[in-house]
Design a protein around this nucleic acid. Structure first.
Lengths: 215, 215
DNA sequence: CCAAAAGTGTTTTAGTTACACCCATGG
DNA sequence: CCATGGGTGTAACTAAAACACTTTTGG
C-alpha cells in the first residue's frame, strides 16, 4: 500500500486463472515448507508485485471454510508499506498490475463497504474476501498511526512536515490542524532535522526531516 | 486467561507426549478441514481446557520453521477471556491442568522475559514458543484495554467499580487513581447501574454495574 | 463509636485545538 | 511588492491526576 494524492492506494493484480478470472486480487502465494511467514511475505511481494525493501507487518489470518471455492485455503494476510514513487517501476513491469484507490468508511458511518477504484474512479470487483482484507489493513493503519512510526514507511528518507501531515490525513481521512500536528510530531522525539530544505518551490522551502529510530 | 488476585493467569496443560513431555503448554489442536478458525478455537477450548462460552480473539499467527521439532507447524494463536470463578470446574476435571500466573515486563524494562509461575511461585518451563505467545497476549490486552470492552469479559455479569479497576490494574500492572478511574468509566457510557449492591461486606456495599453493549 | 471501603468535590496539570500572526521565497 | 505556504506564539478548552473530603455499612 501507499498514499497517492491524499488517499490510500493498494497494488492489485489481475487474475489470469479461475476462480475470479479477470478480477482484481491482492498479490499473494503459498508459504514454502521451510520458510518463515515474514520471509514468505517479502518473497511474494518481490515475485508477484515487483516491490523490494518494503516495511511489512502481519495483519490477520483468514480461514473461513468457503472463502476459496476450489478448496480450503487459510490466508495469513500481511500488509506492506512503501513511498508512492517506489511503485512506478513495478507498474511499468506488468500491465496486469494497478494501483487502486481504497475507500474505507469509518465504523458506524453509513458510506457502505470497502471499495477499490481505478484511475477513472470506476469501482473494481475484488476476488475472494480481499475487500475485507483491504478494509482491515486500513483500519489497522488508522489505529496504529499515532503510537507507532508506520507513517515513516510511507515517506522517503527525507521529508517535510507537510508531507508527513499529508500521510496522516490520507490514512485518517480527515484534515488536521497544522500547528498542533507540527508540535505533536516534534515533541514525540521521532524526528531529526537535517539542515537541508526542499527545492523547486515558488514559496518558502520547508525544512527536511529524517526519522530517528531511537526510542 | 483470567485475572487472579490482581495478576494475569493462563490455563496450561501438562504435555503427555513428546516433544516437551511433562512441560506445560497452552491448550490447542488442529483446525478441521471444514471448520472456521474461531469455531476451532472455541471447540478446542472446550475439549482441551473444559471451558465454555469464553470471549475469544485471534492474536497472531506463528510460523517460524523450527518452532515444532517434529515437523512444520503453523499456529494461529487465539486468546480467551473468562472470569476467574469459571476455572474451578475445569481445574477439578483434570490434574494435568493448572492456572499459572504470568509476568510480562513492560517494553524497555530490564525485568527479563515472560515467565509463568505455579501457586508456589516456581517458574514453569513452557513448551514450544508458548512463552512468546503468552507475552504477546498480555501486551495485546494492555494495548486494547482502554479503547475496547475486553475487561468486561473477565468479570461476571454484575460487578462493582472496584472489581473493574482491579481487572485494569492486573492487566496494566500498575495502581490507578480511584476517582479518575471511576469517572472515566462512567463517562464512557459502557456501564449501566443496576439498583443492586454487593452483599457480605463489613463496610459500605458498592453498587453493582452491568456492561451495556450499546455504542 | 470505629474501621474500612464506597463515593464525591475541587484544584492543578498537561495535552490538544483554534486562531492570529510573522517569515522566507520566486516571480 | 505580492502571493503562497512555512513556521511560531498565545489563549481557550478538555481530559486526566492528585488530594481531601463525606457517606454508609458491620461490628
Amino acid at each position: 500500500m501507499t498514499m497517492v494524492e491524499g488517499v490510500p492506494a493498494a497494488l492489485l493484480r489481475r487474475r489470469e486463472e479461475h476462480p475470479f478470472l479477470g478480477q482484481w486480487a491482492l498479490p499473494g502465494g503459498f508459504v514454502g515448507i521451510d520458510e518463515g511467514l515474514d520471509e514468505a511475505a517479502l518473497r511474494l511481494l518481490g515475485t508477484e508485485a515487483h516491490l523490494e525493501g518494503a516495511y511489512i507487518e502481519q495483519l490477520y489470518t483468514f480461514g473461513a471454510p468457503g472463502r476459496d471455492p476450489r478448496t480450503r485455503v487459510v490466508t495469513i494476510a500481511y500488509f506492506a508499506l512503501l513511498p508512492a514513487d517506489r511503485f512506478a517501476a513495478a507498474l511499468k513491469h506488468s500491465a496486469e498490475l494497478m494501483l487502486a484507490e481504497v475507500t474505507v468508511p469509518w465504523a458506524g458511518e453509513v458510506g457502505g463497504p470497502v471499495t477499490a477504484c481505478d484511475d477513472d474512479g470506476a469501482v473494481l470487483a475484488l476476488a475472494f474476501d480481499h475487500a475485507d482484507i483491504l478494509g482491515l489493513a486500513i483500519k489497522r493503519l488508522r489505529g496504529k498511526l499515532d503510537y507507532s512510526p508506520i507513517a515513516f514507511a510511507l515517506l522517503p528518507d527525507m521529508f517535510t512536515l507537510r508531507q508527513l501531515q499529508d500521510v496522516h490525513e490520507a490514512i485518517l481521512g480527515v484534515r488536521l490542524n497544522k500547528p498542533a500536528f507540527r508540535r505533536r510530531m516534534l515533541d514525540r522525539g521521532w524526528l531529526e532535522g537535517t539542515g537541508e530544505r526542499e527545492a523547486g518551490t515558488s514559496f518558502r522551502p520547508a525544512e527536511l526531516y529524517r526519522f530517528k529510530p531511537i526510542d
